[in-house]
Amino acid sequence: MVRWSVGIEAEGDRVMELEEVVELADAVAPSGGIATGIGTTRYGAQLVVLADTRDEAVEKGRAEFAAAVAKAGLPGYPVVRVEAVSEDEDMDADPDLDAAGG
């Protein structure tokens, strides 16, 4: 299994409030996640999942995101962006980082 960073954003018809994004942040924290969206019509999260393939990572990320959105009590806006980057790809993309992380 490989560690993947999965970014997901959903977009709706109103601006997200600080408290709503804080609730989402609390809901994604157990997945090593962070939340975004204060003051925009989007809310999103960056989650860490374990998966063998990009498709599996996206599927797991979407499921965790949906559960976090429900737990946070946010409106179920349509997902407009999903991306997944493996730990290996992330390291390859930044030649300044070595295996020790610095």
Rank of each mutant, 00 (worst) to 15 (best):
A93V: 06
R54K: 08
I34F: 11
S5Y: 14
R14Y: 15
G7T: 14
V15K: 12
E17T: 12
P30M: 03
I38C: 06
E17R: 15
S31F: 09
S5M: 10
D94K: 04
Y77C: 07
V49W: 00
D92N: 15
D26A: 15
A99Y: 10
P75F: 05
W4H: 01
V2H: 13
V85W: 01
V48R: 09
E17V: 15
A45D: 01
T53Q: 01
D94T: 04
E20W: 05
E89H: 03
P95L: 10
V49N: 00
D55F: 04
R54L: 00
A72H: 06
P78C: 07
G37E: 08
R81L: 11
E83F: 02
M1S: 07
L24Q: 06
R62M: 08
E56K: 00
A29I: 06
L97S: 11
V85R: 00
A67M: 07
G33Q: 01
A67I: 03
A51Y: 02
L97A: 13
I34A: 13
P75V: 06
D90A: 14
Q46C: 04
D13T: 15
A10M: 07
A70S: 15
A70P: 04
L74E: 09
A84L: 06
P30K: 08
T53G: 02
D26T: 11
R14N: 14
E19L: 05
G76R: 14
A100T: 13
V2A: 14
G73N: 03
V80T: 08
E64K: 02
V48D: 10
R3H: 03
D26K: 15
F65S: 05
